[in-house]
C-alpha cells in the first residue's frame, strides 16, 4: 500500500480586474505517513493557499493530491481555535462528525476517549469561554482528530496565543501528533517553530511560490522545546532565514 501523501503539480492563480496573479507555480511533494512537514515562506507567498487547496476550501486549477490512491480525509486547524461559543465543549468537538454524518456510537466513544487522554473530560459540558486559551486549542485539536484525518493541516496554529502558551501548546500538539502517528503539514511564518516541530522544512520562494529548498531536520529530541536548545537548531534557523531572503530595514 502506498502510504504517502502525494502532491503533484499543483498550480493556482487568482483573477482580479487588473489581471491574473499566479500564487502557486507547480508544487510537488511526497510526504510519508507520520511525518511532520513544515512549510515556511515570506508572507503572501501562497503557502496558505496551498493549505486551502489541500483542505478543500479553495480550488486548484491544475494538479492533484492523493493519499493511498484516494482523496484523503483532511483535518484542518486554523489560526484560532474557531470554537462556537454557543455550543458546549463536547458539542464543539463532535461538530465535524455531525456535519459528515459520522456521529456513530463508535466515533463518539473515540471522542470521549480523546477527552480523557487530554485531561479535558471534566470540561466536556462547559462552554468555550470558561476554558483557558491552551485548553481551547486542545478542544480544537480533538474536534480535528474526531474525524480521524489521514492528513492534519495546521495553518499558523496558535498564532493567536501568547509566546508562553504557544510553546506549551505546540509541545502538547506535537506529542499528540506523534502518538497518533498522523501525517502533518504545518504552515508557519515562525522559523523556530517550524524547525523545532518538523521532520522536514520546505522553504517556498516568493510569489508565485515554488519549492526553493527542503531541509531534513535531524534534531533527536521528542520534545520541541528541547529541540530549540540543540546545537544544530541555530544552523537550520540561520540557513532558512537566508533562504527566505527577507528584507529587513
Amino acid at each position: 500500500m502506498n502510504n504517502t501523501l502525494t502532491i503533484a503539480h499543483i498550480k493556482k492563480s487568482y483573477y482580479t480586474k487588473k489581471g491574473e496573479i499566479k500564487a502557486i507555480d507547480d508544487i510537488n511533494l511526497e510526504i510519508k505517513k507520520g511525518e511532520i512537514v513544515a512549510i515556511v515562506g515570506s508572507s503572501g507567498c501562497g503557502k496558505s493557499s496551498l493549505l486551502g487547496i489541500l483542505a478543500g476550501i479553495e480550488k486548484c486549477h491544475e494538479g492533484s493530491f492523493y493519499f493511498q490512491n484516494r482523496k484523503p480525509v483532511i483535518g484542518y486547524m486554523l489560526q484560532n481555535d474557531a470554537l462556537f461559543p454557543w455550543l458546549s465543549v463536547y458539542e464543539n468537538a463532535i461538530l465535524g462528525l455531525k456535519i459528515q454524518k459520522k456521529d456513530t456510537m463508535e466515533n463518539i466513544a473515540y471522542v470521549k476517549k480523546l477527552f480523557k487522554t487530554y485531561n479535558l473530560d471534566e470540561f466536556m459540558n462547559k462552554y468555550p469561554h470558561e476554558l483557558s486559551g491552551g485548553m481551547k486549542q486542545r478542544v480544537a485539536l480533538i474536534r480535528t482528530l474526531a474525524i480521524k484525518p489521514d492528513i492534519l493541516l495546521l495553518d499558523e496554529p496558535f498564532s493567536a496565543l501568547d509566546y508562553q502558551s504557544r510553546l506549551a501548546i505546540s509541545c502538547d500538539v506535537f506529542k499528540i501528533i506523534k502518538q497518533e502517528k498522523i501525517t502533518t503539514i504545518l504552515v508557519s511564518h515562525d522559523i523556530a517553530e517550524a524547525v523545532s516541530l518538523a521532520n522536514r522544512v520546505v522553504v517556498l520562494s516568493k510569489r508565485p511560490c515554488k519549492i526553493k529548498k527542503i531541509y531534513e531536520i535531524n534534531l533527536n529530541n521528542d520534545n520541541p522545546i528541547l529541540n530549540r536548545n540543540e546545537k544544530d537548531f541555530n544552523l537550520y534557523y540561520q540557513q532558512i532565514w537566508k533562504d527566505l531572503d527577507v528584507n529587513v530595514g
Binding site: Y76, L78, A82, I99
Partner: peptide
C-alpha cells in the same frame, strides 16, 4: 467569522 466558515468547509 470567516475562520469558522473555513472550518466548516474543511469538514465538507
Amino acid at each position: 467569522d470567516e475562520t469558522k466558515i473555513k472550518l466548516l468547509k474543511s469538514f465538507g
